[in-house]
Structures are given as C-alpha cells and as structure tokens.
Amino acid sequence: MQHILVLTVVVAGLGAPVMAEIAPADVPWAEDGSISESLTGTPGKPEEGKVVMTTNALGNCVACHAIEALPDVPFQGNIGPQLDGAADRWSEAQLRGIVVDAKHTFPDSFMPGMYKVGPFIRPGVAYTAKPPEKPEDIQPILSAQQVEDVVAYLMTLKE
C-alpha cells in the first residue's frame, strides 16, 4: 500500500511540467535589486532556512546578524542590522535579491553574495586557499533551494 502511494507520487512528479532551476548567471534581476521569481519553483521551508542561516558551513548569517527570535544560537555577530522584523521592512522579492547578492540592493555591501559564482578577484575553492582548476570548482555558497528556504524563514521575521 505504502509502496503504491510512493510510486503514484513519483509518476505525478514526472508528469507535471518540471521547472528548471535558475542558474546564478541567469537570475532575473529587477532594477531595484529584487528578484520576484522563485529560483526553483519549489516553496522554501522556513525550518530548513533557519538551519542554513545558523550553520557556519552554510549561510552563517548569524556571523554578522543578530536574530533575537533565535535566542539559543550563540555568538551572534553585530556587523549587519538585526534581522527581526525583516519581513516588515522588505518584500519577499527584495529579500531574495538581498540573499542572492546584496550588492544589487546595497552597492558597496559587506554582505557576501550567496548565490553568485563571479566575477571575483583571486577566488579560491571554498576555504582551501587553492585556485579553481575549472569554472565549476567555484560553487555558489548556497544552493538555489537553500536560498528559497532562507527567504521563507526571513518571511517569518515579523514584529
């Protein structure tokens, strides 16, 4: 019974028009630095986004931003603005733009582009200090779905 159900879901998935993920180079930027289209077509999961934002090896957003809504996360930084209330200040499209590459919203921003593969000056492969051997060695910091998850979490930050 369970097996049959799984199979049905898979078949349904194949039948539906599959939306291609938007690659970093093809992001449809609006003039104001916002991105209204989802990068994946799959709604983000706030719980996953929270993990991405608080994990060093992923978004590590708390390195620079404090989030009072997450009191259990230690050592929150104070470089950027506190993120509580972000969804009151920005629309979903604007938040997606800030996460993908904040420099389209704040031109000289210190905030790293999370879904960006260049051009960079002397990029290394992650933290290895080694230059890439081929362009694919430079991967965006977050995957398209992780960006959507982060945006979904940010949308819960209302005051």
């Binding site: 060093n56 620079c64 050592f75 929150q76 470089i79 210190f110 790293p112 960079f120 990029p123």
Partner: peptide, 19 residues
Amino acid sequence: QLEMSCANCHEDNFGKNIR
C-alpha cells in the same frame, strides 16, 4: 568569493563581532 577587503573587517568594522 566573499569579496572582502582588509578594510571591510579592520577599518569599517573593528570593535564589532563577526560571530
């Protein structure tokens, strides 16, 4: 890839906490 200069950390943000 993080597009950071020495100045970003040690001039613009000294005194602050990064994690």
